[in-house]
Structures are given as C-alpha cells and as structure tokens.
C-alpha cells in the first residue's frame, strides 16, 4: 500500500533501494501477504465439492480483499497527491522551457 504522503520531498523510495544496494547493507524485504488458502479439506463425501468451491472462490475473495484494502488504504489520496506532484512538475518544466526559449529568442534576435 502506498502512503499518501512521502516521508520527505528529498527522499525517493527507489533511490533508497539503490542506496541500500550500494551501501551493502542487508535489504529489508517487506513480508509477503499471508496466503489466503484455508486448511486442507478433510477427505470424504462432499469434501471434494467444498474444496472445489473454495478453490473457485479463492481468487474472488482475494480480489475483494485487495479492493477493500485499496479503498480503505488511502490509495485515492496517494494517487491525488501523485497527480498534484506531476502537475507541479509539469508547471515547472513548462516554465523552464518557455523561459529558455524566450531567452534564446531575445539573445539571437
């Protein structure tokens, strides 16, 4: 899950990973989600049906869980923050490009 606000504007997660690689420290891996699979079905009549139903429902349940996580985990806020950052970056780049072009035209007239 992405946090809605970065720790600091100067710190980039990917850059931290590269720095960790360069610094040679053991990497910190976030543990993977627990498996959603339930206990092994008991052998016997009807257990085959139950296990088939469980297997069929597994992906749906995991999808619903992940969607709920996304909805409650501030994903929208994170995306909005990202869009705002991209807009600010776009405004910066546009202003820089226009200023350089204007300076070039004034210098070369």
């Amino acid at each position: 899950m992405t946090s809605p606000e970065p720790i600091h504007p100067a710190i980039d997660d990917d850059a931290v990973a590269r720095l960790r690689q360069r610094a040679g420290a053991p990497s910190v891996e976030v543990s993977a989600n627990e498996s959603v699979a339930g206990p092994e079905p008991a052998a016997g009549a009807g257990s085959k049906l139950r296990s088939t139903a469980r297997r069929a429902a597994g992906p749906v349940v995991s999808r619903v869980r992940s969607e709920l996580d996304r909805a409650t985990g501030g994903e929208v806020a994170a995306l909005r923050a990202e869009v705002a950052e991209l807009r600010a970056e776009l405004a910066r780049l546009r202003a820089e490009q226009q200023a350089v072009l204007a300076a070039f035209r004034e210098d070369r007239r």
């Binding site: 202003a95 204007a102 004034e106």
Partner: peptide
C-alpha cells in the same frame, strides 16, 4: 524568469 513565471506563460518580448 522560469521561477517567477511558473504557472504563467513566459514569452520573448
């Protein structure tokens, strides 16, 4: 000029 004109349109006179 790029900093001052951020969010506006910068042109050559």
């Amino acid at each position: 000029v790029a900093l001052v004109g951020r969010g506006h349109r910068v042109v050559s006179w």
